[in-house]
Design a protein around this nucleic acid. Structure first.
Lengths: 227, 227
DNA sequence: TCAGGTGGTTAGGTTAGACTAACTCCCGCC
DNA sequence: GGCGGGAGTTAGTCTAACCTAACCACCTGA
């Protein structure tokens, strides 16, 4: 009774659903129908239909009117897609001249077409990178992912000495702006000031002082700096 | 009335049909329904259905009960796919350790997912190669393809001094065997003997003498050697 | 406590692409 | 010159996705 035998290959669509369900339910809990619909830009009834198919296939657990969670099998499939996506992003930026703000769409299409073999060769050629260009951890081929304990810049206290680890957006305009400001994964920063009422955070980098609005400060994931 | 405006992107399936129609009708003339069905491993009525859609889209010309030919627009699209496929094959073999016998399937899937930009970057990284690993010419980005005048080894006379230019199969087992025999694009050879009744052809290479059966000899495309 | 409203689901329809079964065209052979 | 067989097409069905319209469940606030 091993469901792994004769496993039919997943469709593009299924792969996309699993990925967004992973992201939406990663902070524990359920992914809501409307959230999934929003992320994939489809109508809610389309999600209901797919949810039915996915839970029949044993990839998700569906609690009607509550939402959806990945099963072990679904999680494995989702992590595989995330590995593909992130390895592709690193490869395209390091080997083919892509920038961190334009690599997402290309990887998004390629991730459904590459073989495991190709991904492992790309990863090998890159020296098995652990993070993608935005600082997100790359799951291992075995399906393990680093769970880092990061704090949004917006939530860290004035005076904190931090390292920027990860940037939580794929929006090209925001990414370009952040790169201009030198706000890239790995950079060291110190919070010198914050205006009240969701005001901007002022940080000091080696390269100078930056004033970061609330919206962007919530996308900049940091950890305490160990000097 | 420019049909190029608002052109919907082609589906994977359409891209595959255009490619096989290109190959089947490249020696002038029409591609037959059953040939297309055979190449794509679908049933003939599926081809009839697709043919209707493609000719409505202006990509092919259909003469009922005779067959199908590409229009200028369809030819352009087919050559674009062939460029993608062949550039991918070169990239995967030169940069990622693929062999000429296992690169076809990977390229076949990727060709539908890559952007024009990525293909041009790969081509650039490779120095704009003109031939794929099997010696097939790569169409230019502008859609032009070299029309070489090649002769199958099986059809060349005894005594001919030839250069092997292109290998007309993607079958891994045959390709592996040919590589073992040193029968690779670019190699110089002289026909020393041929047995009658579709018998084997004996050739002399720098590396030694080879006896090539009729089936393989029809896959080895050669041109006269200019010493 | 029950009345809305929001969000989720069901019902029913569309499209691309495939299939099988059944029919028709064409050509070669007698 | 007609007939038979193979190739091509038409008709009808299926599935995966999507959609809109309509219906229902749950929770919150009066």
């Amino acid at each position: 009774m091993n469901a792994l035998l004769h496993e039919p290959p997943l469709t593009r669509s299924v792969e996309d659903y699993l990925k967004v369900i992973y992201h939406l339910s990663s902070q524990g809990g359920f992914a809501a129908t409307s959230e999934i619909a929003g992320s994939l830009d489809v109508a809610p009834p389309s999600v209901s239909g797919m949810v039915k198919r996915l839970s029949e296939a044993g990839l998700i657990e569906h609690v009607p009117y509550r939402g959806v969670q990945l099963t072990t099998q679904g999680r494995r499939a989702a992590l595989k897609m995330i590995r593909r996506h992130r390895v592709l992003e690193v490869y395209l930026t390091q080997q083919l001249g892509y920038d961190w703000d334009d690599v997402h769409d290309e990887a998004e299409r390629l991730e459904h077409a590459v073989s495991d073999q190709l991904i492992e060769r790309m990863a090998g050629a890159l020296g098995d990178p652990r993070y993608d260009p935005h600082g997100a951890p790359i799951p291992t081929a075995a399906g393990e992912i680093e769970e880092a304990d990061l704090t949004a810049l917006a939530d860290a206290p004035v005076g904190a000495e931090l390292e920027l680890r990860q940037v939580g957006t794929e929006d090209p305009a925001r990414l370009r702006y952040l790169a201009e400001q030198g706000l890239l994964p790995g950079v060291a920063l110190t919070i010198t000031e914050r205006q009240p009422f969701n005001g901007p955070t002022t940080v000091r980098l080696a390269a100078g002082v930056r004033i970061v609005g609330q919206e962007l400060a919530q996308l900049l994931w940091c950890r305490a700096r160990t000097p």
